[in-house]
Design a protein around this nucleic acid. Structure first.
Lengths: 220, 220
DNA sequence: TCATTATTGGCAGACACTGCCAATAATGTT
DNA sequence: AACATTATTGGCAGTGTCTGCCAATAATGA
């Protein structure tokens, strides 16, 4: 029962370092996409801008469009964290107003970049696809939060649907935000966005009647 | 004011013909994807199987993964049609049981192929992306139907969310179906799928309380 | 300094896809 | 029937994405 291995040779890079490098590349990629468009930006350019070889670029990303992923994920993770810290007794809208500031550690330019990317997804199908895949990846988190809160198993179809609705609300509100804030973002529109989102989510999460199909009959 | 042009030369192919050709190619592509996997299937193979040149294949599809689109769209269109024919007085679940047979004009092998593709989307990220884009494309139809039924403008955020929830329910139920029906489909599992979907949608479309935020207060 | 393991870079090549033009098909006109 | 006209298709060359492979380098313990 000696400890399995005394560890030799160069240690693997930590996961945080790896994510940091991906994020770094992502920022360069998004900058180039904004400046020149996606089609006019080559993988070689992205690699050069990020100071890595093309080969390692393709080791980190399966396609040039997916280079936007780390940057978008960062913002989405922030929202997930807010959801997870949602105390049981308070209403979601209320909690959002308190905790969802959208500019906590994220630098301001990152916010702008994220909005620009989401704006581009409307013309660039490949970017839209990446965006949708990303949104779907966040749904399990929503499922967990909602399931625990409602006290139902997290493989229940209603919970998955509610989670999808939350995701859709976030997506719809954000899609609205990016067109409204086309000419520069100021704190005002961000606040408005949060309020709109809060209103939408209050509707979704007024939950209890899920469990009682009788409601439908009574409503007749 | 003579009629603009007496029309000369070869007439353009009708849109139906074009869609038919795309569907034909799609069937061959899906067959090859199932037999060999997506990665092992080249565009050249698809083109050869469909009896067209590679050049025209790329004229019809922007990527080899998107070749699955016409076949999936066919099934999704069927569902959209069912929704559009939903009479105002009847409940959706009830209407589904009456109208959503899933094998009306679709050949049986098409159904199997569609399910196989959706099953593959769980391992093939590019296919998943195509599937999600497709699902999103159907949402405006859901929005129109729901908005008219609820008598609200179809750019209302709640309607878009409900539509997304319908879409998500369809997606979740179908994802469940494809794993259940992994070893061959029989009418029984299809019926069960329809019932599950009907139950889920009854929950979503028990609509009226959307318009009254007061409900939330009363529920406390 | 050496042995060991992880990461990176360089290179060759397969494959996805596009631009361009010639070939062919389908029509109306003479 | 031959022709002019327009739409579609095919062939070919070229660019860009992405992968497999191996050598080079970096980071560690001995």
């Amino acid at each position: 029962m000696a400890q399995p291995n005394p560890r030799r040779g160069r240690p693997p890079v930590s996961e945080e370092q790896r994510q940091q490098q991906r994020l770094d590349i992502s920022r360069h990629a998004v900058r180039l996409f904004r400046e020149q468009g996606v089609a006019a930006t080559s993988g070689e350019q992205i690699a050069r801008a990020a100071g890595v070889s093309e080969r390692t670029l393709w080791r980190h990303f399966r396609s040039k469009e997916s280079c936007v992923e780390p940057l978008l994920t960062k913002t989405l993770d922030a929202f997930q964290d807010v959801l997870r810290s949602w105390p049981p007794e308070v209403e979601l809208a209320e909690h959002l107003r308190a905790a969802y500031t959208l500019v906590p550690e994220s630098s301001w330019s990152d916010i702008e970049a994220v909005l620009a990317v989401i704006r581009m997804t409307h013309d660039e199908p490949a970017l839209r696809a990446a965006y949708l895949v990303l949104s779907e990846r966040a749904e399990p988190t929503f499922v967990d939060v909602l399931a625990e809160r409602l006290g139902v198993p997290n493989d229940a179809l209603e919970v998955r649907m509610q989670a999808a609705a939350v995701s859709a609300a976030l997506r719809a509100a954000t899609d609205e935000l990016v067109v409204i804030a086309a000419g520069g973002v100021d704190p005002g529109v961000l606040d408005e966005h949060r309020e709109r989102l809060a209103d939408a989510l209050r509707f979704i999460t007024r939950a209890p009647d899920i469990a009682s199909p009788l409601r439908t009959d009574m409503a007749r």
